[in-house]
């Protein structure tokens, strides 16, 4: 299977994602330039972290209009796997592929640290290697990761089980103290209703190697590979 990693001007986590993918059995990397509308037959699109277009106007606001994003939207509509990490999550919200928005962290700080996440959906293509309520340790690195949605949208997300990851303590308790950025309901990652578009602020690609302090992120990549391989076989 093939991961397509989108590269915008200002993207910085593309090679980190690529390095992880290169080490996965049965996975290849294709870098997709933002001006290129051709997704080249990839099975899973990753929108990586960074500062696409300098984060001008709002994070993800300009990236959303690039040629590649139109194709990503069509790909998602056909059920293709789309995975937005950090800036990628912001772009997915700006594109309307996911609800809500990511605003300035409460406290105004850029937060770069390890956090714990509790997984609430272990049945998704991206998470089926995890157990439900499993706690993983993943780094965050963002200034605008404060998830906001109006009350009606939040309650829809909760009712439909679209919250995939929440900031928690190491035991998996979702506490205010464990919330690094002020996100509503401690939300760190959500999925669309269909379950094929995931957006998350934390960086699994930065913890996919024990030498980098942790390898919990690898589980997400392995899940996506297995899901894509299965989809190809069926």
């Amino acid at each position: 299977m093939k991961f397509g990693i989108v590269v915008f001007p200002g993207t910085w986590s593309d090679r980190d994602c690529g390095l992880v993918v290169e080490q996965l059995e049965g996975a290849e990397v294709e870098y997709l330039w933002h001006k290129d509308a051709d997704l080249r037959g990839v099975d899973c699109v990753i929108l990586p972290g960074g500062f696409s277009y300098g984060d001008y106007l709002r994070t993800g606001a300009i990236a959303r209009f690039s040629p590649v994003m139109e194709s990503v939207g069509e790909f998602a509509a056909r059920g293709g796997l789309v995975w937005g990490i950090c800036n990628g999550f912001q772009i997915l919200c700006e594109s309307g592929l996911l609800p809500g928005a990511l605003i300035r962290n409460a406290g105004m700080e850029f937060r770069c640290e390890w956090v714990h996440l509790v997984c609430e959906r272990a049945d998704l293509p991206f998470t089926h290697y995890l157990q439900e309520h499993q706690v993983i340790r993943v780094p965050i690195s963002h200034g605008e990761g404060n998830f906001f949605a109006d009350p009606a949208t939040l309650s829809r997300l909760e009712q439909r089980g679209q919250v995939v990851f929440r900031y928690s303590d190491e035991r998996g308790y979702v506490l205010l103290d464990a919330n690094p950025n002020g996100s509503a309901h401690n939300i760190a990652g959500i999925v669309n209703e269909r379950g094929n578009v995931l957006g998350m602020m934390p960086h699994p690609e930065r913890c996919a190697d024990p030498q980098l302090g942790g390898s919990d992120g690898l589980l997400l990549f392995q899940s996506a590979v297995a899901a894509a391989v299965e989809a190809l076989a069926s």
Partner: peptide, 13 residues
């Protein structure tokens, strides 16, 4: 402008 219902950490600072 940020909507009234949206927290504005910049404004607070």
């Amino acid at each position: 402008m940020p909507k009234a219902v949206v927290n504005d950490p910049q404004g607070v600072t």
